[in-house]
Simulated assay, not measured.
Amino acid sequence: MNIAVFAITKNGIDQAAKVSRHLQQAGHQVRMFRPARFPGEGEPFTGPVSRVVAKEFYRCQGLVFIMALGIVVRLLAPLIRDKRSDPAVVVMDERGQFVISTLSGHLGGANELAQHLAGALQAVPVITTATDVHGLPAVDVLARKYNLTMEPFTAVKQVNAALVNGEMVTLCSERPLPLTQTPSLRLIPWEDLPATRPQGWLVVITNRVMLLPHEKTLFLRPRNLVAGIGCRKEIAPERVRRALLHALDLARRSPASLRALATVDLRVQERGLQLVAREMGIPLFSFTREQIRSIFAQKPNLHHSSFVQGKIGVGGVCEPVALLAATPQAKLILPKTTWEGVTVALAEESYGWWERDREV
């Protein structure tokens, strides 16, 4: 996690240095900031601290402030956008007595960061989110832990409120996850889902597009799909987008479960591919023809095109690159499909998707 630590007084700088050293030892990337008029560790700044905070707020995944909570509230008020994008914010007093989770407690990980720092520095963690206060599971914490996208996001607050108010929430996961049933959270097997008619909210963990006869449903989408794409030069982004959505529709999979696009290195600079990947907030991977040939050698049943072989030297793009970009155990759930001159194949990672790209 990229973390910025701020202090504005002499005593605060000493505490900030201690916090920074501990976070670095724990594997985080840390930058510490202090006023230039005070000596000590960290990067000196001149002018108002608000300028530095504004820059780091959008760059970092976590911010730690060694100062009064009221000052931090005033600094952050103009910067706060959305709980899905705001960084984790933790506030500590200069003596290191209390560690307060202030912003993005669940999704950003501020609660976890506060508890970690409190344990390491022998301070008292201050956590105020209702589910944590009552020792209840929160769906946004579950989503963060297992790298799940919440759909629709507006339902998250209602599900958490139901848990806090003692209402039963039913959860069903397509893949076996180490989840624990509680008095307010009932777990049911995947095969029981079609006939389920719970009284309250239903939470379903799947990448499938499903029509369930239950209005109060929250889907948690695993990021476990990779789309391999083959295209011509100067392909329009609209055609890439339509072909991708068409493939997902054929496979009955949610776009929210896409974690990456992949293509051959000859096409990775295509504006149409790069723009669609950027719009979806996912990476675009590329592979050499040598890597693609190796997959064809391992999996002779992949679709082979003599036309593509003659054009770029390999017998296909979308199927092999989808498998190359996915985990070794992934399977093609949608073979090569063509839409308006764009080929798309989908690979699905059945397990362990939450561990990929996880930061310390």
Rank of each mutant, 00 (worst) to 15 (best):
V5H: 08
F6A: 11
G12A: 07
D14P: 02
Q15K: 14
A16I: 04
V19A: 09
S20W: 07
S20Q: 07
Q24F: 03
G27W: 04
V30P: 00
R31K: 12
F33C: 10
R34H: 12
A36K: 08
A36F: 13
R37E: 13
G40I: 03
P44R: 13
R51F: 10
Y58Q: 13
Y58C: 00
C60M: 11
M67F: 12
L69N: 05
L69E: 03
I71T: 12
L76G: 08
A88C: 01
E94F: 04
V99I: 07
S101M: 09
L103H: 04
G108C: 06
A110M: 10
N111L: 07
V124S: 08
P125V: 15
V126P: 07
V126F: 15
T129R: 07
D132S: 06
H134R: 13
G135T: 14
A138Q: 10
V141N: 09
R144F: 02
R144Y: 05
N147Q: 07
T149A: 15
V156I: 05
V159T: 08
N165T: 03
E167H: 14
T180L: 14
Q181F: 09
P183F: 08
L187S: 03
P189Q: 12
A195N: 11
T196A: 15
Q199A: 15
L202R: 02
V204Q: 02
V204K: 02
R208K: 11
M210V: 11
E215I: 15
K216R: 15
R223S: 06
R223Y: 00
N224M: 08
C231P: 01
E234D: 06
A236T: 04
A236I: 01
P237K: 11
P237W: 08
R241M: 13
L244I: 05
D249C: 02
R252W: 01
S254D: 10
A256P: 07
T263F: 10
D265T: 02
Q269C: 07
E270C: 13
R271P: 00
L275Y: 13
A277C: 09
F285E: 04
F296G: 06
L302V: 01
L302W: 07
V308M: 06
Q309M: 15
G313V: 14
V314L: 14
V314Y: 13
A326E: 01
T327A: 09
K336P: 09
E340M: 14
Y351A: 06
Y351I: 08
W354K: 00
E355N: 03
D357I: 01
R358P: 03
